[in-house]
Computed example of a mutant assay.
Amino acid sequence: MTDQRTETATAPRLLAVLVAIVTMFGALLADFVIPATADQHMRNDAWPPHAKFHDAQYIVMSFLLGGVALALLAARGGGGRSRLWTACAVLAAPWLGMLGAILFPRTAIQDPEFDNPTIARLHPQLLLALILLTLLLVAVLLPARAIRRR
């Protein structure tokens, strides 16, 4: 027989682990490895070295934040719910940062020479950010809902 507390504790952690893995490897793959998207970022000859520096900084930062979140999620002992919340907050930082970056003057989600398809009228990066932030919100709300049901 399955313990309901174990199920609700596992589902949020699995959602957060999924987001952590995407956070760790997403920017590296998209901005540096996958040719179609790397050509728009680190392999874009039109980008000055300082712009590439900041993209590389984002890649490393995302990897580190995902790693910190995974360490929090893998830890055992007391404070599991607070570790989950902390991990979700850490994971939300780069995705909220992406959404906040478009509010700055003279920024754009893509360079004008590239034509990326949209999905539901959103640039794929923005859609991914919204999906991952939604998963983190669900991960945080699931344990609270289970506690209220008891």
Rank of each mutant, 00 (worst) to 15 (best):
W85S: 07
G66E: 06
I34M: 15
L91I: 08
V90L: 03
G97D: 09
V90E: 03
G97N: 07
L84K: 01
M42L: 15
L65M: 14
H50Y: 09
K52S: 09
D55T: 05
A56E: 06
G77R: 02
A56R: 09
A92H: 04
Y58H: 10
P105H: 10
T118W: 11
L91C: 03
V60T: 05
Q57T: 12
F114G: 13
D39I: 08
F53Y: 15
I59F: 03
W47R: 13
T107R: 09
G78A: 15
G78S: 14
A108L: 00
R76M: 05
W85C: 01
A89L: 11
V68P: 03
D115G: 12
I102G: 12
P94D: 07
M98S: 02
G67T: 00
D45T: 14
A92Y: 01
E113W: 07
L70C: 04
A75P: 04
Q57E: 12
L96R: 01
K52R: 14
P117A: 14
W47Y: 15
M42T: 15
V60K: 02
S82K: 09
W85I: 13
A87L: 03
G97Q: 08
W47G: 06
D39K: 13
G67K: 00
Y58I: 11
A56S: 13
L99D: 03
L70T: 05
V68C: 09
A87P: 00
C88Q: 03
P117L: 14
A46I: 03
Q110A: 09
L72E: 01
V90F: 08
A56T: 10
L103V: 02
L99K: 03
D115C: 06
G79Y: 00
P48I: 14
L99E: 11
V90S: 03
L70G: 01
R43W: 14
P117S: 13
L72G: 03
A56L: 13
R106P: 01
A93G: 04
F104V: 05
D111C: 02
H54Y: 15
G78M: 01
A108I: 00
H54Q: 12
A51M: 09
I102N: 01
A74T: 04
F104I: 02
A89V: 08
T118M: 12
L73A: 09
P94Y: 07
F63S: 07
A51R: 06
L91T: 06
R43A: 15
V90I: 14
G66F: 01
